[in-house]
Amino acid sequence: MQAARGTPLTGDQTDPAPSGPVPSRSSNRRLLALFAAVALTAYAVDVVSKIVAVDRLTGRPDVQIVGDLFQLHLVRNPGAAFSTGTAYTEVLSVVAIIAVLVLLYLSRRIGSVGWAVSLGLLLAGVAGNLTDRLLRTPGPLRGHVIDFFVLPHWPVFNVADICIDVAAALILVQVYRGRRLDGSRAPRDHEAAE
Rank of each mutant, 00 (worst) to 15 (best):
D46V: 04
A81N: 11
L32D: 03
V66Y: 01
V91L: 14
V45D: 04
V45I: 11
K50A: 04
G59F: 09
G20F: 01
L72Y: 15
T84M: 15
D68N: 12
A53S: 08
N77Q: 05
S49P: 06
T58W: 01
A39H: 05
G79N: 10
P16A: 06
A17L: 13
S93R: 05
Q64L: 10
V45W: 06
V94M: 12
V66W: 03
R56T: 14
V45N: 04
R56L: 11
S24R: 15
V22A: 15
P23W: 07
A36C: 09
A87Y: 14
G20C: 00
T41C: 09
E90N: 05
A81K: 08
F70V: 04
G59I: 11
R56V: 13
S19H: 06
G67D: 01
L40F: 11
N28S: 08
F35K: 04
A37N: 05
F70M: 02
K50P: 02
G59C: 08
V95R: 01
T89E: 00
T84H: 07
A87K: 09
L69T: 12
G59Q: 09
T41Y: 04
V94L: 13
S27Q: 14
P18H: 09
S26P: 06
G79F: 03
L72G: 08
V54T: 10
A53W: 00
V22H: 08
L34Y: 03
R30H: 08
F35G: 00
Y88T: 14
A33F: 14
T84L: 15
D55G: 11
V38L: 07
A17M: 10
G79I: 04
V45P: 00
A87W: 13
L31A: 02
V45R: 03
D55H: 08
A87R: 11
G85H: 00
V22G: 10
A33Q: 11
L57T: 03
V48K: 08
R56I: 13
R56P: 06
D55C: 09
A87V: 11
S93P: 03
T84F: 10
V54G: 09
V47T: 10
A33I: 08
F70Q: 00
L72H: 12
T89V: 02
P16Y: 06
V52T: 15
P16M: 09
G59P: 07
T86E: 05
L72N: 08
A36I: 04
V52Y: 06
A42K: 01
F35Q: 02
P21I: 09
V38K: 04
V66G: 02
P61S: 13
G59W: 10
E90W: 11
H73W: 05
T58S: 08
